[in-house]
């Protein structure tokens, strides 16, 4: 019986027998992918909803309705001024058109992107209907690519977030519970090598790391046709690096606290900024540029960037060596410090 193997087996058993942990690590990210993938799926471009303000019996109104009906991109309806105002406010329509003698007037909110689009479309349709000739021919080539949809952006982010969560909770909680139940002290009273205990966490993470990533990728592939553009080897290396970095941070977080409350507080303090800033759900470049150096230094930002680069763009590892270096730095520092300050009782 090898102590390292027995310790690792114990880790694996404890994890698999903890139903909540299995849910949060495997089921939850899949549900999340599903929910967000559905909510933000890209469909064929939606029609632009337009309201014509006026009376249907007015010939200028019916002529206008006729013009708009020629465009497949527009869905229009004739409404009273009251209703037009209400629909515009609630976002049901993008723009209101009012025949105004021989001309037209448009009413819309310029801060809404779809309203600005609607203005261009309506203007184009009406000018042509009234006899404008195009001066130059413009050809079109329409492409909808996987890899550029929201779900393609989302999946690597969710994987990164999951690697962070399972690394921190997985090590942090398990170790602090063992300390508070005096199991660490009990182990310290045996000839067990202390390095074996800590190493067993790395090995058991190794088992689950890839299952975690595989669960989300597989699901996203089945449900949304998600594909990985880069090499699987690169994905493997990044997962390994990211998983171990967050295990190291988990070890650091768990090095001293003796109570669950203590370690929970510490973990939330560490994870919260990364949940918000590291670009899981939207690009972190949207934050002000003064924050950017700080955001870039966060391990989750680096991991998300690396995962997106390989999954969405198919970039090889070395093109993002800066982010690799950031993760390696965190990994090294957290391990060294954790081992130095680790308390067995």
């Amino acid at each position: 019986m090898n102590p390292l193997i027995e310790l690792t087996l114990t880790r694996v058993r404890e994890f698999l027998r903890e139903r909540e942990a299995v849910f949060w690590v495997f089921i939850f990210p899949v549900l999340m992918t599903f929910a967000l993938g559905i909510a933000f799926r890209n469909t064929a471009p939606d029609k632009t909803f337009v309201a014509i303000e006026g009376d249907a019996s007015n010939p200028r109104v019916s002529e206008l309705a006729n013009f708009l009906a020629h465009s497949p991109e527009i869905s229009s309806s004739v409404v009273t001024p009251d209703e037009a105002a209400r629909s515009l406010r609630s976002g049901k329509i993008a723009i209101v058109i009012q025949p105004n003698g021989d001309s037209y007037s448009l009413r819309f909110d310029p801060t809404r992107p779809e309203s600005r689009t609607a203005r261009l479309i309506v203007d184009d349709v009406l000018q042509r209907a009234r006899g404008r000739n195009d001066v130059v021919q413009i050809g079109e080539q329409r492409i909808t690519e996987t890899g550029a949809r929201y779900v393609d952006f989302l999946v690597p982010g969710l994987i990164g977030m999951n690697l962070m969560g399972s690394g921190l909770w997985g090590l942090g909680f398990t170790i602090v519970i063992a300390r508070s139940r005096k199991i660490l002290k009990r182990f310290a009273a045996t000839p067990m090598r202390r390095s074996h205990y800590l190493l067993s966490f790395m090995l058991s993470r190794l088992v689950f790391l890839f299952l975690e990533v595989a669960a989300v990728v597989l699901f996203a592939w089945l449900a949304f046709g998600f594909t990985v553009r880069g090499s699987w080897l690169t994905v493997f290396l990044i997962t390994l690096l990211g998983g171990f970095t967050f295990s190291g941070i988990g070890l650091l977080v768990a090095a001293r606290p003796t109570t669950i409350e203590g370690v929970s507080g510490l973990m939330n303090f560490i994870m919260l900024p990364m949940w918000l800033l590291s670009g899981t759900f939207f690009s972190s470049e949207r934050f002000p540029s003064v924050l950017q150096p700080f955001i870039k230094a966060l391990p989750l930002t680096a991991l998300n960037t690396l995962l997106r680069a390989v999954m969405n763009e198919g970039a090889p590892l070395w093109t993002n060596w800066m982010h690799v270096a950031i993760l390696l730095g965190w990994l090294l520092v957290s391990f060294v410090v954790a081992l130095k300050i680790f308390k067995w009782q």
Partner: peptide, 10 residues
């Protein structure tokens, strides 16, 4: 030890 509580799930 007086206070050790061994892991419950194993």
């Amino acid at each position: 030890l007086q206070e050790t509580q061994l892991a419950e799930k194993v």
